[in-house]
Amino acid sequence: MDVLINLFVALHIIGIAALLGGFLTQMKAMSAGTARFGPAMLHGALTMLITGMVLVGLNQADGHTLNNIKIGVKLAVLIVILGIVYVRRDEESAPKPLFGAVGGLTVANILIATLWT
């Protein structure tokens, strides 16, 4: 079971890397006002959602104690990110504050995952 959990943790990290990488590659465009939410950001957020749900199920099945408040906060932040990216995915450019909010929420989600014990 540990191998399966670690596999989904790796996939979860790949999802966050796609979301954050998509944001970071658009930083220069954001300053010019031409940043847009690319497919990598949407697919990264969806990957995080699916792998996160699988990880919760696998960890519960393995008998681990879970911090449900932490998981709920991370899920809420991810749903906000996913909603913004999904709704604005076809637009030519995203407003700077909205694009910055997605980057900030992504970093916040990483910090919640790593620092909240």
Rank of each mutant, 00 (worst) to 15 (best):
A18E: 04
V85F: 10
E91L: 11
F37W: 04
D62K: 14
G38K: 15
T25N: 13
A17Y: 08
T47R: 01
L98Q: 14
I79V: 15
G57P: 05
I69S: 11
R36D: 12
L46R: 07
I71L: 10
N59Q: 08
M48N: 08
G38M: 11
I14T: 13
K28F: 07
H43V: 14
V80Q: 12
A61K: 13
R36K: 11
L55W: 01
A32V: 07
R89S: 07
K28Y: 04
A29Y: 06
G63I: 02
A32D: 09
M48K: 05
T34R: 00
V73A: 05
G63P: 05
A17S: 15
S31E: 02
R89Q: 09
A32S: 02
E91C: 01
G21C: 00
I69H: 12
I16L: 14
V87W: 04
Y86L: 10
L66V: 12
V87Y: 15
L66S: 08
L46F: 06
G21S: 09
L98H: 03
P95F: 00
R88C: 02
A76R: 01
K28H: 05
A17R: 03
V87E: 03
K28S: 07
L66D: 04
G72Y: 12
A45I: 05
V77F: 08
K96Y: 11
L82S: 08
G22M: 05
F37G: 09
A29V: 04
I81S: 12
L82W: 06
V54E: 09
I69P: 05
M41I: 09
E91S: 07
E91Q: 14
T65I: 13
L20G: 10
G21L: 09
I13W: 15
P95D: 14
N59E: 14
L49H: 06
L19I: 06
L66Y: 10
A18H: 06
L82I: 11
T51D: 03
R89K: 13
G63C: 13
M41N: 05
L82Y: 07
H64W: 15
S31Y: 06
I69L: 11
I71C: 01
L42N: 09
L19E: 13
K96C: 00
Q26Y: 01
V77S: 00
E91T: 08
P39H: 04
I81T: 09
G22S: 08
A18C: 13
L19G: 12
L55F: 09
K96M: 04
M30Q: 10
V80C: 14
V85I: 15
T65C: 09
A18D: 09
